[in-house]
Simulated scan of single mutants.
Amino acid sequence: MMVAFFGVVIGVNLLMMRLAIQTLPGTEVDSAYAASLAYQKEITTAQAQSARKWKVDAHVKRSGQGGATLQVEARDHDGKPMSGLKFQGRFERPTDRRADLPVALAEVGIGIYRGSAETIAPGQWDLVLEGMASGQRMFLSRNRVLLN
């Protein structure tokens, strides 16, 4: 009976450990050391973005089938629409990286970029927008959004 008791306890512990490892949502960064080395570059990039004084507005509109449309309007420091940029959007779950959902944005008008996510669950998401020009990231923003 003692061997059976400890066998059950060890078996349950192994099962719980395996389930915990499989459902681990992950970490914010894979390597804290590599992230710390890139930190100064991120500060410089953020200062350059701030100096450009771009105004980038994003609007998320839910569709009836559980999807969402993301529209981004980009204007320069004078308020003129900016064309020719490549915007990428990403809905990130704050609690689980496996649920992250990229959204491809295409320019549909001068300074207006639009893309859709066919299926996105309701709840809190981090909307990450990246604007690229000439292969270089010119804009980055991260905002918490609530989708119903």
Rank of each mutant, 00 (worst) to 15 (best):
R98N: 11
A38D: 14
I10S: 09
W54I: 08
G11A: 12
A74I: 02
V29Y: 07
N148E: 08
R90M: 10
S134P: 07
G135I: 00
R75W: 02
I10D: 04
V72L: 05
S134Y: 02
T45M: 15
R137D: 06
S83E: 11
S141Y: 11
V8Q: 03
A104T: 14
D126F: 15
M132K: 07
G64R: 13
A74M: 01
L24Q: 08
F139Q: 06
Q47P: 06
R52L: 08
E28P: 02
A38L: 08
V103R: 05
M1P: 09
D30W: 01
V72Q: 04
I112Q: 11
Q22S: 12
A51Q: 07
D76V: 01
R18N: 13
G135F: 05
S31G: 08
W54G: 06
V29K: 02
D100N: 14
Q22V: 09
K41Q: 15
T27Y: 07
M2F: 09
D76A: 02
G131H: 04
H77T: 07
R18P: 00
V9F: 12
Q22A: 12
T27C: 06
V3D: 01
S134C: 01
L15Q: 02
T119H: 04
L37E: 12
S83G: 05
H59D: 08
F5G: 08
R142L: 10
G115L: 01
M17Q: 13
D30K: 08
P81T: 03
V103W: 00
A133E: 15
W54D: 03
V145N: 12
V145D: 02
W54R: 04
I10M: 07
T23G: 05
P122V: 03
V3I: 14
Q136G: 05
L146D: 15
V8P: 00
S83Q: 10
D96P: 04
G131T: 00
G79Y: 04
E130N: 10
P25F: 01
M2W: 13
R144N: 11
K41W: 05
G115F: 01
A117F: 09
V108Q: 11
A106Q: 13
G7Y: 13
Q40Y: 00
M132Q: 06
A117C: 09
Y39K: 06
L85R: 04
G7I: 02
L15M: 10
N13C: 12
R18D: 11
T27K: 07
F91C: 04
T45P: 02
I110F: 10
